[in-house]
């Protein structure tokens, strides 16, 4: 009801998983790269999301402690960016563009097909935890509309008919290209340089 106020004073009953010592160490490895600890916010959130699949309340608190910030400052950044998840995410995240070019080329049909096939709506996850679905403002490939992104891999000119094959493909989310020389690998691991 509109006159009722949400209680924000008490912590949620389930704060979700926290960060392990190894993950915290990974985040600390970023500190020497920046002038302030605050600047490590985005890499730290990436590391956390990679480790536990999303950014839990507990993880936000852990990061706040590491970066010596109030936890609200972490929540501010997490909620600003749509690609940080604040609730559990499936193994593969399907992102459909909802901007003009893709819409004209049938993105809404594609979205409808995904929603009926998986039985989930925007920003939801299938019960088996395999797939999550979200819409995206633009995937920057209007010339190949409609586009569908699965984790890091972009699929172009996707029709609803191709969907079954795409969902069944175990590698549909792998970026096919190796990283470029300019890629700055997180948490200090040595990347394979060159192509």
């Amino acid at each position: 009801m509109s006159w009722q106020a949400i209680d924000r004073k008490s912590a949620p009953a389930d704060e979700g998983p926290g960060l392990s010592d190894a993950v915290k160490e990974k985040i600390r490895a970023f500190f020497p790269r920046y002038e302030t600890k605050r600047a490590v916010m985005l890499p730290a959130l990436h590391v956390a999301q990679e480790a536990i699949g999303y950014i839990s309340v507990r993880a936000m608190k852990d990061i706040a402690e590491l970066l010596e910030l109030p936890p609200s400052a972490v929540m501010d950044v997490v909620t600003f960016y749509t690609h940080y998840w604040t609730h559990p995410r499936g193994e593969k995240v399907l992102m459909v563009c909802r901007s003009l070019s893709c819409q004209l080329m049938g993105a809404d049909k594609l979205q409808h097909a995904i929603e009926t096939k998986l039985g989930i709506k925007d920003h939801e996850t299938t019960p088996d935890g395999k797939f999550s679905f979200m819409t995206e403002e633009c995937l920057a490939a209007c010339d190949h509309a409609p586009c569908l992104m699965v984790n890091e891999r972009m699929h172009k000119r996707v029709t609803p008919e191709q969907l079954d094959k795409l969902l069944a493909d175990a590698d549909s989310d792998k970026l096919p290209m190796p990283r470029s020389d300019l890629y700055d690998a997180p948490h200090g691991e040595k990347p394979a340089r060159g192509h």
Binding site: R8, P70, A73, V74, M75
Partner: peptide
């Protein structure tokens, strides 16, 4: 110097909030 309040979300969904449990 306490920084409990923040802006969460963005655009027309932006709102002021505190971290749950840190009033």
């Amino acid at each position: 110097g306490a920084g409990e309040l923040r802006v969460i979300n963005r655009g027309h969904r932006a709102e002021i909030d505190v971290f749950p449990g840190v009033p």
